[in-house]
Amino acid sequence: MIFFIRKSLLTVLLLVAMSGCVGLMPVKGPLDVDGAYRITLGETWSAYPRDSRTKLRNLTIDGEALNSLTFAASLEDGHTLIRTYDRQRLLPVYRSDMSQTEVVEFIRDSLSVGGMADATITSLRPEPFGALEGVRFDVKGATQRGLNMSGTGKAAIEDGKLHLIIYTAPTEYYFGLHEYEVNEILASIELL
């Protein structure tokens, strides 16, 4: 029965979109992430403002549904990646005593709560995150609508706090389009 009220919701969305209250900034080259680590972007990306609740930052080149580089630093025990104002909502949270497999499981479950269908980790392997021992992972899934999605990312724990980076894009054409740039970014991580 939701479609009966769909129109008024869309009016709100439209007004928000048109109000220009979200500032998209260009970013290129070295980018410091909350003073914890630095990544280096080879191409020019568009950056959304950092979300103060989730501490997540999001970059895109072609549009957030076509490529999305999401990252955060120094997430603490109990932190959730899901944007919500509902403090009572039960959600996947990070725990500082998580193993690498559990960290990746936490990211996968967060993607699932965030709307990715059939989110599946296809590979985990050790890979340096700057000077830290990190875990590199690949993920696949789909939008609810059925568009296949691919992703790759890296995570590491420093003094009990979590750093993570994840890139997702439609499997058809867009994941491959910036794959080289993304791999370069993941290799460029330096701790600060």
């Binding site: 690498q100 497999t101 296809t122």
Partner: peptide, 9 residues
Amino acid sequence: APERGIIEA
């Protein structure tokens, strides 16, 4: 196994 890399390490 997706976790093979981690486990073998």
